Amino acid sequence: MITKDTPILEALQSHPQARKIFALYGMSCIGCMGSARETIASGAKMHNIDVNALLRELNQPKEKE
């Protein structure tokens, strides 16, 4: 489960859909060096994103393709 304290890089590595969700929320800096240490909460705050809405999407079960 991804929490507000999960580093962005960890979320990207453990949840393949995370990159798409971050992009939908305008978090285009997910490839920058800061994402290795930056948490979901700090990234959301920096981009004026509702962290709870972001976490809901990140933790939704992956849809079958």
Rank of each mutant, 00 (worst) to 15 (best):
1 M>D: 08
4 K>T: 15
4 K>R: 15
6 T>N: 08
6 T>Q: 07
6 T>L: 10
11 A>L: 05
11 A>E: 01
11 A>G: 07
12 L>W: 04
13 Q>R: 03
13 Q>P: 05
14 S>V: 10
15 H>D: 12
15 H>W: 00
16 P>G: 09
16 P>S: 02
16 P>M: 00
18 A>H: 03
19 R>W: 02
20 K>Y: 11
21 I>P: 01
22 F>T: 00
22 F>D: 02
22 F>E: 01
22 F>Q: 03
23 A>H: 09
23 A>T: 13
23 A>K: 01
25 Y>C: 04
25 Y>R: 00
25 Y>F: 10
27 M>E: 13
28 S>V: 03
30 I>D: 02
30 I>W: 00
31 G>T: 15
32 C>V: 11
32 C>D: 08
32 C>A: 13
33 M>Y: 10
34 G>L: 06
34 G>F: 00
36 A>T: 11
36 A>C: 11
36 A>Q: 13
38 E>D: 12
39 T>A: 07
39 T>Q: 03
39 T>C: 06
40 I>Y: 02
43 G>E: 13
43 G>D: 01
43 G>F: 05
44 A>N: 05
48 N>V: 14
48 N>C: 15
49 I>C: 07
49 I>S: 11
49 I>G: 06
51 V>H: 01
51 V>L: 02
51 V>Y: 07
52 N>V: 04
52 N>Q: 15
53 A>K: 15
53 A>F: 05
54 L>M: 13
55 L>T: 15
55 L>D: 14
55 L>H: 15
57 E>T: 07
59 N>K: 03
59 N>E: 02
60 Q>K: 12
62 K>L: 14
63 E>T: 12
63 E>Y: 06
64 K>Y: 10
65 E>W: 03
65 E>N: 10
